Computed example of a mutant assay.
Amino acid sequence: MKEGKDIDKLFKDGLENPDLPFNDLDWDNLEERLHPAPKRRGIPLFWYAAAAGIAAMLLIVFLLIKPNGKIETIARSKTGNRNQNNIEKSGDNAVKPNEVPEKQVDRGVNVAQNPLSINRRSTEEGHKQDNKDIFAPNVENGQKTKEILENNGNMLAGIRFKPELSPTINEVEFMEQPLSTKVETGKPDRMKPLAVKQKSRFVLSILAAPDLTSVQKSGQSSLSGGFGVEATYAVTKRISITTGAVYAKKIYDSDFSLYKPNTTYVFSVTPSNIHANCDVIDIPLNVNYKIFNGRRNSISVSTGLSSYLMLKEQYTYSYDGAAYKGPKDYTVRNQNQHYLGIANVGLEFQHKINNNLSISAKPFMKIPLTDIGYGNSRLSSTGVAISVNMNLFKKN
Rank of each mutant, 00 (worst) to 15 (best):
I60Q: 06
R121E: 15
S318T: 14
P44Y: 07
G186V: 04
K290Q: 14
L392C: 14
V203H: 08
A208H: 02
G326Q: 07
N151E: 09
V384W: 00
V203P: 02
K217H: 15
L212V: 07
E176I: 00
D106V: 13
N114Q: 09
M191S: 11
L45F: 10
K260V: 06
D211L: 06
K187W: 08
N336D: 02
Y324E: 15
R190H: 03
N297F: 15
R33L: 15
L347A: 12
K146G: 10
L149Q: 13
P36T: 00
N354E: 02
T73D: 09
S272M: 04
Q129C: 00
A50E: 06
A385F: 02
P193S: 07
L285A: 15
A136M: 11
L223N: 06
G153N: 06
N262A: 04
S381K: 03
L311F: 01
M1P: 07
D106M: 09
A51P: 02
M390Q: 08
M365R: 02
F161T: 09
S387L: 03
I359N: 01
F11E: 10
F62H: 08
N131W: 10
A385L: 08
E164N: 14
S254Y: 14
T270P: 01
R190P: 03
S387N: 10
A157E: 00
K9C: 12
P193L: 01
E176L: 05
R160K: 10
Q113M: 15
E176Y: 06
D329I: 05
G373C: 05
F292N: 04
V196I: 06
K199F: 13
N152C: 01
N81Y: 11
S300G: 04
N170M: 00
R190F: 12
R40N: 12
R378F: 04
V246Y: 06
A231M: 14
N138D: 07
I239V: 12
A361R: 04
L309P: 03
P284C: 02
G126D: 07
F227R: 07
M310T: 05
P363E: 03
L212G: 05
K103W: 14
I367A: 06
D255G: 10
V332T: 06
S302M: 04
N86S: 13
T242S: 11
A55D: 03
I274N: 04
G69S: 09
K128V: 05
T73R: 13
I342S: 01
S318V: 02
G42Y: 11
N273E: 11
P36I: 01
L311H: 01
K394A: 15
P67T: 10
N23L: 09
D371K: 08
L156C: 00
E3S: 09
L204I: 05
E164D: 10
L149A: 01
G228T: 01
I372M: 01
L59Y: 11
A245M: 14
D13I: 13
R295S: 10
E164V: 13
N154C: 05
S77P: 00
H275V: 01
I239D: 02
Q84F: 13
R295I: 10
G80M: 06
S302H: 00
D106R: 14
G108E: 03
F22E: 12
T331R: 05
I386R: 05
A385R: 11
D24F: 08
M365N: 10
I386L: 11
E348D: 08
G80I: 01
N81M: 13
L347T: 09
G158W: 05
D19L: 08
K197G: 08
L58A: 15
L25E: 12
